[in-house]
């Protein structure tokens, strides 16, 4: 049977993480489902609660970044005035209010589900994660952090402390989640896309797809190919852009949807973004 710890401070938490092999437990909305069992949840290891630590709940603006404490609830992020629109939209569509009042972004990230809804916007917005242990801290780019379903770059003694989201100016944005139903839904696939267009030229573009691979699909080389194009040039290239993305979107069949559907819808959404959203 598992033991549980409830440290009173971040320092105490880091000490526990250092000394023992623990499952960090923030909101627990994923962990409690994954470890559900009769009478008591059946965790494989001991558990350390950290959702209550004030140090991990802060959301603040720091220069050109928004810094989100790993244990900030999804509801807190949803209602924070400085949360970037794409992230807010994604978070607001995760599960239902009761779950968002409890679930945290840190948990969503460390659970590393390919269908985790806060992750694609973090990729698209070039977010970084601050990991801390007793020995010190390090900052990892979102796309370097995820290693596969349920696997991340976090070391045993580390905790995810903060999520750093650059507050870039994008003038064209699109978030679309395709779920199993209108609300309280798991994701079949999603697109997060943003562009900065000035004087008819695409200065910057970022496109991420969720739930269509072991990790989020974002390709900086393909984005680089679009950057610098005029809108007219881009429009002409849409077929080749779609074909480039078609090669890297390789989803699977599961109980929620089919690979064929996921891929087709992602390409449709990308086309829609390039043709419709990027009109103005």
């Amino acid at each position: 049977m598992s033991e549980s710890y409830r440290p009173e401070s971040l320092d105490e938490l880091l000490k526990l993480m250092d000394e023992k092999d623990l499952i960090p437990f923030a909101g627990g909305t994923d962990l409690m489902v994954q470890n559900a069992a009769p009478v008591l949840p059946g965790f494989k290891k001991d558990v350390v609660f950290l959702g209550h630590l004030k140090e991990l709940q802060q959301i603040r603006k720091e220069g050109h970044d928004l810094v989100i404490g790993a244990a900030a609830t999804l509801s807190a992020i949803e209602s924070h005035p400085d949360t970037p629109g794409l992230l807010r939209e994604a978070v607001a569509l995760i599960a239902a209010p009761a779950l968002r009042n409890r679930g945290t972004m840190g948990g969503n990230i460390c659970n590393a589900s390919p269908a985790g809804d806060s992750i694609p916007p973090l990729y698209a917005l070039d977010a970084k994660f601050r990991l801390q242990s007793r020995k010190g801290e390090r900052v990892v780019k979102a796309e370097d952090f995820f290693k596969g379903p349920g696997r991340t770059d976090r070391k045993k003694e580390e905790i995810l402390k903060e999520i750093i989201v650059p507050l870039k100016e994008w003038n064209i944005k699109k978030y679309r989640k395709v779920g199993t139903r209108a609300a309280n839904a798991l994701t079949k696939c999603s697109i997060t896309a943003a562009a900065k267009v000035k004087g008819g030229r695409i200065d910057d573009i970022s496109i991420a797809f969720g739930a269509v691979g072991p990790v989020i699909v974002r390709d900086r080389t393909l984005e680089q190919n679009i950057k610098g194009l005029t809108m007219e040039e881009m429009k002409e290239k849409i077929p080749s852009i779609l074909s480039d993305y078609s090669a890297i979107i390789v989803p699977i069949d599961d109980q929620r949807s089919t690979a064929v559907y996921r891929k087709q819808v992602c390409l449709n959404l990308l086309k829609d973004f390039l043709e419709q959203d990027m009109k103005g």
């Binding site: 409830r6 627990g28 909305t29 409690m32 949840p41 558990v47 609660f49 209010p97 779950l99 009042n101």
Partner: peptide, 11 residues
Amino acid sequence: IVNSCLIPVGT
């Protein structure tokens, strides 16, 4: 509002 099935009482 929260789901009490997802909350360990220790928290």
